[in-house]
Each structure stands twice: as C-alpha cells, then as structure tokens.
C-alpha cells in the first residue's frame, strides 16, 4: 500500500480525520500538503509529521471560486500532485422547520461545493502527475445511506458527494484520475464530540451500540483514505467505501 514519494493534498488537516490522514500518509513516505483555516492548529499537525517535504496552506474552502487557482499555486510551489483527500466538513443538526438558505449554504459550501472545486483544481493541466494513476478521495457518511431525524442538510450534502463521485469517476478515468469516497460512521473527533454533547447518556450508549465495533477512531478512516490514495487501489474508482464499524448492519 505504497504512497512513497507521492505528493498528497489533505484538506481539514488541522484536526480529526484530516490530521490523522496527514500523519499516516507522512509516516508512509508521502509528501503531505496540509490545508486548513487555523494556522496554529495546522502548525501543530505539521510538527507531528514524520519525514520531510511537507507544507501547509491556510485557506478557507468557503472561498470556492478561488480553489482551482489555489491548487494550481500549490503545484507550482511544491510540485505536481498525486492525490487529494478532502476531509474538511461540518455537521449540523436542524429540524426541517428551521432549515434556511444560510444553513444549507454553510454545509454545502465546505462539503460538496469545495469538493467539486478541489477536483477541478486537481484536474488542471500541469497540476497533477500525468501518465500515472492519481486519486481523489472525498468524505461521505453513512448519513447519506440511512436516515436520521434532524440531519437532512448533512445527509443531502453527503448524498451529493456520492453522486458526484460516480460521475467524476466516469469523466476522469481517461485521465487516470480515480475518484472515490469514504462513507464513515461515527468517529471520535471534535465534530463527534459536538454531536454527542446534544445527546443524553442513554442515547449515546444506544448510538455506540449501533456501531457493532464501537465508535471509530480518526486513524480508522485515515487508513482507508491511504488505501484509496495508494497504488494498492489502482483498479478502484467510483466507489463509496463504507467504514462504519458495522453501523449499517444494525
């Protein structure tokens, strides 16, 4: 499962799954380009990385129109890219009666809009390695496949990711760009802490029980992301890989 020498962009790298992915990729010999909004936390991630050739960029992915030129700029300064892992995301609990344009935009902007613009940036001529298999990995969620009251916007944004993965995979296969997503269950991150803070102790136990292997760790998703970014998955594209500790079975 080699990523040795590959230059891989990781969004949401200042915490949680993005940070864990950056760490495991660096440990395996990749040169990681960290993207995040918080410079201090991004520096912390950078300091955790093994190996050399890593870099960091403070950037707000809500500036979607600027993403393609931002990615181009990264490739000019760091060299051509082999992979992209879009780990940045937000969660939101909102009954349909409270949904408004602002809340939809908040979630869709950093999830699907940023994903599409990151893909556009990655596809530009001169940005990615050519003649070799390259890989784009997005974060989806089991919430796109199973319903959960109050999670309509979030589920819809992840459903949009799942749809985009399939069409992008078709469009980009001739350019040897693979496109996949990871549908994660509940993973112990800051986002997860916010979700369970809204639940009673009893509900948390029930929620974890539905994950047959318990709540996941960021490293569990990071490992799956590394597989999809590596040459071990060179014949895999257009898939939504479920990594949920058995949640979908319960």
């Amino acid at each position: 499962m080699s990523v040795l020498g590959k230059r891989i962009v990781v969004s949401g790298a200042s915490s949680g799954i993005g940070r864990a992915a950056a760490q495991i990729l660096a440990k395996s010999g990749a040169k990681v380009v960290l993207i995040g909004r918080d410079e201090t936390r991004l520096d912390s991630t950078l300091n955790m990385l093994e190996g050399d050739g890593h870099s960091k960029y403070v950037f707000d992915l809500n500036n979607t129109d600027e993403i393609p030129s931002f990615i181009k700029d990264i490739s000019v300064k760091q060299g051509r890219l082999s992979g992209l892992f879009h780990a940045a995301g937000l969660e939101m609990f909102k009954p349909i009666g409270l949904v408004n344009n602002k809340s939809i935009e908040q979630i869709f902007s950093v999830s699907i809009k940023a994903a599409l613009m990151l893909a556009r940036g990655f596809c530009q001529k001169g940005v990615r390695e050519e003649g070799f298999s390259t890989s784009i990995v997005f974060m989806s969620s089991v919430a796109a496949m199973t319903g959960q009251a109050g999670m309509t916007i979030y589920s819809a944004s992840k459903g949009a990711i799942d749809g985009a993965v399939k069409s992008l995979a078709c469009e980009l296969a001739p350019h040897l760009i693979r496109v996949n997503a990871i549908a994660a269950g509940a993973v112990k991150t800051e986002m997860h802490d916010k979700i369970i803070a809204r639940m009673t102790a009893e509900s948390i136990k029930e929620y974890e029980r539905k994950h047959l292997l318990g709540f996941g760790r960021p490293e569990d998703i990071a490992s799956a992301a590394m597989f999809l970014l590596s040459d071990a998955s060179v014949w895999i594209t257009g898939t939504i890989m479920v990594v949920d500790g058995g949640y979908m079975l319960s």
């Binding site: 939101m92 609990f93 909102k94 009954p95 109050g150 916010k194 803070a197 809204r198 639940m199 102790a201």
Partner: peptide, 19 residues
C-alpha cells in the same frame, strides 16, 4: 430536546447538556 440544544448553540454559542 436535541433540536433545542442545537438552537441554543447556534444563538448563544453554548452547549447545555441534554440531561
């Protein structure tokens, strides 16, 4: 209750425990 916790967080920036 969960919707109220989310609304409190959105409007006041605090998290009140469900219990």
């Amino acid at each position: 209750v969960v919707a109220t916790i989310a609304a409190i967080n959105e409007h006041f920036g605090i998290t009140v425990p469900a219990d």
